[in-house]
Design a protein around this nucleic acid. Structure first.
Lengths: 342, 342
DNA sequence: GAAAATACCGAAATGCTTTTCGGTACGTTA
DNA sequence: TAACGTACCGAAAAGCATTTCGGTATTTTC
């Protein structure tokens, strides 16, 4: 007879069901199923067949309760809408999924109250660790140190240096962009950035200035800050070309801005990359590969960042010295906007 | 004395710790904390203070084990990368989050094996339900009916009509787009679509033809199918205008295609919306609001779709008649590409 | 003042699995 | 044949919270 729950649904089979069917004790059934070697082969066979027959799967709740570990991790994001959060999520899910760990997804939607609420829920569910994913690279408030599980901050580092954080290296990104423009022979380079309130904007600008200084050059005009939009890219490049028509390389701090830059250059009759080379940031494929010409860009390796964060959750406690903010390398993706296609 | 685990970390407080500290039995402590009314006010106060003092939080595992429900739901996506999956996720997480339910996120990355693996893991964790989120609106294989929990298919409906599915109404979307163009006085309307292998492309085309037929009109040229890219939008509209220069309205089956269309119209010196009106699909804000002019589009209400899917998980079993594919309404978002700004 | 009712509390069972440890039964060795 | 070892199996505890039900102690009612 199939046991049923209150609503009349077939109830999931338990170990005792298996044991009864196989004519053994619960302990023996457990041992047989888990491959312990204190079971006679024939008995094991009987148990496995019984388990198969009623499609038994061990209840992870009971197992976790006993083991003290649940094999679950909380992903606490401040804003799922953010384009940068998704690849990090994917990387983390990927890294955990391979290791039998499942992920609780919590979206605080930028609200600190909701974040606390989710945090509490995660702890009640006895997650083995938590990854906090921010939407900007600006430091964010720490969740504190009195938590019973390891916490890793991804993208947005914690403002507490004794926490474990991983974030992309924006300074290196800015440097890399400029070094690439220099390598293609550009010398009169401008930088159109986004919202100056973002650490990402400031960090990239630092890398830009450092790379130019190393080459004994100066930026054409000042860094142009405003907002992270295609509109701004269009407006800024119009302004730039009227004031500094000699410019031969433009580093846009986002692919969206770069798209605007390409638009304006096209309108003004400048050829890309022959007259002006353009490089973007983020390597947002759908934007970068559909522009005319296709857009060279800096890729922050966010998926890898998610994977690293996942690893840190389980290694951070073993190795306390790892605390602090780890800046992960970025990568250059060359397309037609900086180097002419043959 | 603080109890510690094997690694020396402070162990989470249990109910029996609270009971001991408050000098009552475990049962009484439980009742006091859960607000049952068989406890004297003074006793309750003592218990609550004890709980507060050692920051006790009930172990959800134990609770779930007893209750038979875990308050968790599995979100099984076929592809997190897909742009349409995220808003659905957000909607579902939103709907569940408000009801104390947490979400397990599983990304099968388009692999059926991995999907089965994740499904099994979710069932072992005794989720109360599962939402399967596809990346296309084409029907997908059912997970079957011999599962112990309700399953709802979102975006990609199940190919089994006895399953519960929710999907956006693409036919209505196609109709809505055309009706809007007609309402702005257009009569020579063309439709540039994406990959014809997608149900979304075919469904929208059905809506297009129906709306035109109702108005006693015919499409200018055939529906132009190829791929969902900006490049195709540019190429297709070039072709279209050379063959049918009289066209005064274009319905692009995605915002990306629409962006390409706008590009070409601009290159050819056609004014939008004065000479040609353009309407897109998906209402991808970042694309739609950054184009010149801003793009009118059809919004599939994906976040709402996620919320509905979440609801169905808990109502589907109560009301078996609900099975089948439910098509959710879409919505028109008017911007400058169809109606001139004052 | 006695009987009944009420208010409060605690022991124990429940949910499911894993692990430890004690106990049979059989085979082996002297 | 007696003593011992091995292989296998099962009872029971542990993990934690909830709920039922029986039991005191106190109050109420006649």
């Amino acid at each position: 007879m199939v046991r049923v729950d209150g609503a009349g649904n077939p109830r999931a089979a338990t170990l005792s069901d298996v044991a009864r069917l196989a004519g053994v004790s619960i302990a023996t059934a457990s041992k047989a199923i888990n491959g312990r070697d204190e079971v006679a082969p024939a008995t094991r066979q009987r148990v496995l067949e019984a388990a198969e027959q009623i499609s038994f799967t061990p209840n992870q709740l009971a197992r976790s309760l006993l083991a003290g570990r649940t094999g679950t991790v909380g992903l606490l994001t401040s804003d799922l809408e953010g384009r940068f959060v998704i690849p990090i999520l994917m990387g983390a899910e990927d890294a955990f999924g391979a290791g039998q760990v499942n992920v609780f997804l919590c979206d605080a939607r930028g609200d600190a109250i909701r974040e606390q609420h989710h945090l509490k829920a995660l702890l009640n569910r006895r997650v083995d660790g938590i990854i906090v994913v921010g939407r900007q690279t600006d430091p964010r408030p720490s969740l504190g140190h009195d938590l019973p599980v390891p916490v890793v901050y991804a993208y947005a580092p914690s403002d507490d240096p004794t926490d474990v954080s991983v974030t992309p290296d924006n300074v290196a990104g800015g440097r890399l962009a400029i070094e690439h423009l220099l390598a293609t022979g550009r010398r009169r380079i401008a930088h159109i950035s986004g919202d100056p309130a973002y650490a990402a904007a400031q960090d990239r600008a630092v890398g830009v200035r450092a790379a130019l200084a190393d080459a004994g050059l100066e930026l054409v005009g000042d860094v142009m800050f405003s907002e992270w939009s295609e509109h701004w890219g269009r407006d800024a490049s119009g302004l730039l070309l009227s004031q500094h028509p000699e410019v031969d390389g433009i580093f846009a701090a986002s692919d969206q801005i770069a798209r605007g830059v390409l638009d304006t250059l096209r309108d003004l009759g400048r050829r890309v990359p022959e007259d002006v080379a353009v490089i973007g940031y983020d390597n947002w494929e759908i934007l970068a590969t559909n522009s005319r010409p296709e857009l060279t860009s800096i890729d922050a390796n966010l998926q890898e960042l998610g994977r690293v964060a996942a690893k840190r959750v389980f290694t951070a406690l073993d190795d306390e010295r790892r605390s602090g903010t780890e800046s992960l390398p970025v990568r250059l993706v060359i397309r037609g906007s900086t180097i002419p296609r043959r």
